[in-house]
Simulated scan of single mutants.
Amino acid sequence: MFGKVAADLLGLSDVGSVIKPENYDKVDSDDYVMHEDDERIYFLIKSKSDEYCFTNNALIHLDGTSATSKKRMLYRYSYATNKISDVMLETAGTVDLDIEIKFKIGSQPFSIDVHKKHIEEVKDLYKALIKISEMTHDNEISLRFAKESLDIASTTLGRVTSTDNNLVVQFKMLNQAAFQWKEESKKQYSVKDFGFVFEKYINN
Rank of each mutant, 00 (worst) to 15 (best):
residue 184 E to H: 05
residue 163 T to V: 08
residue 188 Q to M: 14
residue 21 P to F: 14
residue 116 K to W: 07
residue 183 E to M: 01
residue 63 D to A: 14
residue 9 L to S: 14
residue 166 N to M: 07
residue 109 P to Y: 12
residue 125 L to N: 02
residue 56 N to H: 13
residue 172 K to T: 09
residue 93 G to W: 08
residue 189 Y to H: 10
residue 199 E to P: 10
residue 116 K to A: 08
residue 37 D to F: 12
residue 26 K to G: 06
residue 168 V to G: 00
residue 147 K to A: 02
residue 73 M to V: 15
residue 80 A to G: 00
residue 61 H to W: 10
residue 103 F to W: 08
residue 180 Q to Y: 07
residue 96 D to C: 06
residue 97 L to S: 11
residue 109 P to E: 03
residue 70 K to N: 15
residue 183 E to C: 02
residue 44 L to G: 06
residue 130 I to G: 02
residue 42 Y to R: 01
residue 189 Y to S: 07
residue 199 E to D: 15
residue 81 T to Y: 10
residue 72 R to I: 12
residue 1 M to N: 11
residue 41 I to L: 07
residue 37 D to R: 03
residue 55 T to L: 06
residue 67 A to N: 13
residue 22 E to T: 15
residue 43 F to L: 02
residue 21 P to L: 08
residue 99 I to M: 13
residue 47 S to N: 10
residue 142 S to Y: 11
residue 152 I to E: 01
residue 89 L to D: 04
residue 15 V to L: 09
residue 203 N to Y: 12
residue 119 I to H: 06
residue 111 S to E: 14
residue 14 D to G: 14
residue 142 S to C: 06
residue 171 F to W: 07
residue 11 G to V: 07
residue 119 I to G: 03
residue 147 K to S: 04
residue 13 S to K: 04
residue 148 E to F: 08
residue 191 V to N: 11
residue 12 L to D: 01
residue 100 E to I: 06
residue 194 F to H: 11
residue 141 I to N: 11
residue 168 V to C: 02
residue 74 L to H: 07
residue 179 F to N: 07
residue 150 L to P: 00
residue 59 L to F: 14
residue 18 V to S: 01
residue 99 I to K: 04
residue 145 F to K: 06
residue 188 Q to Y: 08
residue 105 I to T: 04
residue 21 P to Y: 14
residue 126 Y to V: 03
residue 58 A to P: 09
residue 84 I to S: 00
residue 4 K to C: 08
residue 39 E to T: 04
residue 112 I to L: 04
residue 117 K to W: 08
residue 118 H to N: 12
residue 181 W to Y: 10
residue 178 A to C: 07
residue 86 D to Q: 04
residue 1 M to W: 13
residue 134 E to T: 14
residue 142 S to K: 12
residue 7 A to V: 09
residue 63 D to H: 15
residue 94 T to A: 13
